[in-house]
Amino acid sequence: MGKKLESSFKNMVLVLFLVTLISSAAVGVVNSFTSGLIEKVQIEKQTQAIRAVVPTFDNDPMTEKYTVKPSENEEEVEFYPAKQNGELVGTAIKTYTNDGFGGKIELMVGFTPDGTIYNYSVLSHKETPGLGSKMDTWFVKGAKGDITGKTPGTKGLQVSKDGGDVDAITAATISSRAFLDAVNRAAKALEKDTKQK
């Protein structure tokens, strides 16, 4: 039988250091194996979102990505131009709002070249399940809050409670306002964009 380690402060610190070192090394190894896969999954999710929000295209919008600042005090939003035979057929814009009931909401909103909303995809949110989380389907074509075919322009879209013409999600007006804030941010950036003009 091996010799028992004396229980002293020095030995406890040494054991704690070794446990921490081994744990850190294990986390590092797992991270190195999974980081590439996680990045690949995120890129694929974003590519699918682009395909869902703009008309059919034959270029690679991910490689033609650029950013636009909607206004001086806002973060940049990402533009993904979709082209068919070299001609712009739509622009997917990765936009955001920090005003959601549960915090930040990220969307991919697709616009036709004239600034009309073609479609959208919710990339991430922390809204209340069964209420604000309904934004995935509430604003799509044919639904009660349908925003497709609308042109926000500089005025932007608003829920009917605020004098606009978009029906808010039942019992989730804050989430609806936040959703439209993200859409309006994308529309404002589209108006400022000089590459498409």
Rank of each mutant, 00 (worst) to 15 (best):
L21P: 00
L123M: 15
P129I: 09
T128Y: 10
K161H: 12
V13Y: 02
F101I: 03
M135S: 11
K94M: 13
E78I: 09
K150A: 02
S160V: 15
I105R: 08
A49N: 10
I50P: 02
K69R: 12
T154M: 13
Y96V: 03
Q158T: 12
G2D: 14
F33N: 10
I38C: 00
K155R: 09
A92F: 04
S176I: 11
T128K: 10
K126L: 11
L107H: 05
V89Q: 01
G163H: 07
L5P: 14
D114V: 01
P152S: 07
G90K: 07
Q158E: 14
F17W: 05
S32K: 13
D167M: 11
E76F: 06
P152C: 02
K45N: 15
N98W: 10
L190N: 01
A82Y: 06
N31M: 09
G142I: 00
K40G: 11
A189Y: 00
T56C: 00
M62Q: 14
A168R: 07
A143D: 14
T116I: 10
F111Q: 03
G153C: 09
F17E: 02
N59D: 00
P55L: 00
V13R: 09
E191H: 11
G100F: 10
V183D: 04
A92L: 04
A187P: 01
G163Q: 09
E78N: 09
Y120W: 07
V19M: 11
N59H: 05
A49V: 05
T95Y: 04
